[in-house]
């Protein structure tokens, strides 16, 4: 494009001569999912959305939702084998090429969680584990002391540990210092759909923890997910918001786009918040008009 044909930019736009395109980095360089992957321990994912499988009404509904979400990592729980059950969630994940993330849901002690993680590693052949040690069945809030104990044991045993934790920045930092590959603070109680109740704590966590921070629990809709990413989360984990939505696959697509939008916004660097307006149109160059005689009164 030459100087003579270049369209006039908006007021304030930089008016440099164009340089040949080949020598200029794309304005979006480094922001595509392939260039900006989620790395957890030794595992790399281009999708930053971790899905759960709980609550899906059928394997076909689950398959549709997982496909629409674009997820590459999805949780399962470990339970007693029921030989009467035909077809398993594992076959769905295998068919979709989605990596499996076993959790320790339902464990109330560090010992139960550690044994469940070891059984999951044996059954599924993965070192990934989403560590959950629950303190209370009504709130399903995590027990921070037992979680720290179990995390230390599992890290020492070679696991890639992703612990579910509260939104307490101190606990999150301690878990990362123990060697957890990521931390997964809750936005609000599991299944509540209340979103991120304390965004300030999330900001403190993402600023202080040197490992990926993944929102776990509480997302109800797409804006919750976008907010998490804007606050600096590296990813989002959710299940109920999709599987219990009226149209799970449609919500899964919304979550996929919200993760992407929030991530791009975080990379872009948002404008600072201000108390008062800042004009976006030029302040000078206004016509001199008689404010007492607008044209339409003539």
């Amino acid at each position: 494009m030459t100087e003579t044909t270049r369209p006039t930019g908006p007021a304030g736009a930089t008016d440099r001569p164009d340089t040949p395109a080949a020598t200029v980095a794309s304005p979006l360089a480094g922001t595509s999912p392939g260039e900006d992957p989620l790395v957890i321990g030794g595992h790399t994912f281009t999708s930053r959305l971790i899905m759960g499988t709980g609550g899906a009404t059928s394997h076909s509904a689950l398959r549709a939702a997982l496909t629409a979400s674009g997820t590459e990592l999805t949780t399962v729980a470990m339970r007693r084998l029921d030989p009467g059950v035909q077809g398993t969630v594992l076959s769905v994940l295998s068919e979709l090429g989605v990596a499996v993330l076993p959790n320790t849901a339902g464990c109330y002690t560090a010992g139960e969680a550690v044994l469940t993680a070891r059984l999951a590693r044996e059954a599924l052949g993965t070192d990934l584990v989403k560590l959950e040690v629950i303190a209370d069945e009504r709130t399903l809030l995590p027990d921070p002391v037992a979680t720290l104990d179990a995390a230390e044991e599992l890290v020492d045993d070679g696991f890639t540990v992703l612990p579910y934790c509260g939104d307490d920045p101190v606990v999150a930092v301690r878990l990362a210092e123990l060697g957890c590959a990521a931390v997964m603070p809750l936005g609000s109680p599991i299944g509540s759909g209340l979103g991120i109740r304390n965004p300030h704590n999330f900001r403190l966590i993402t600023e202080r923890v040197g490992v990926p921070v993944i929102l776990d629990a509480g997302a109800g809709t797409a804006s919750d997910v976008a907010l998490a990413m804007e606050l600096g989360c590296a990813g989002v984990m959710l299940a109920s918001a999709v599987t219990r939505a009226q149209r799970p696959a449609v919500m899964a697509a919304a979550m996929r786009d919200a993760v992407r939008a929030g991530r791009l916004a975080a990379l872009a660097g948002r404008i600072p918040r201000r108390h008062f307006a800042e004009a976006s149109s030029p302040q000078d160059g206004m016509a001199h008009l008689d404010p007492e005689r607008p044209a339409f009164t003539s």
């Binding site: 990596a99 499996v100 599924l124 052949g125 993965t126």
Partner: peptide, 19 residues
């Protein structure tokens, strides 16, 4: 299991799906 054990892990590594 009665011969109905789930087979295969989601990540494709050798594992039987049970432990």
């Amino acid at each position: 299991t009665g011969g109905n054990a789930p087979v295969g892990s989601a990540d494709g590594r050798r594992a039987a799906g049970i432990a």
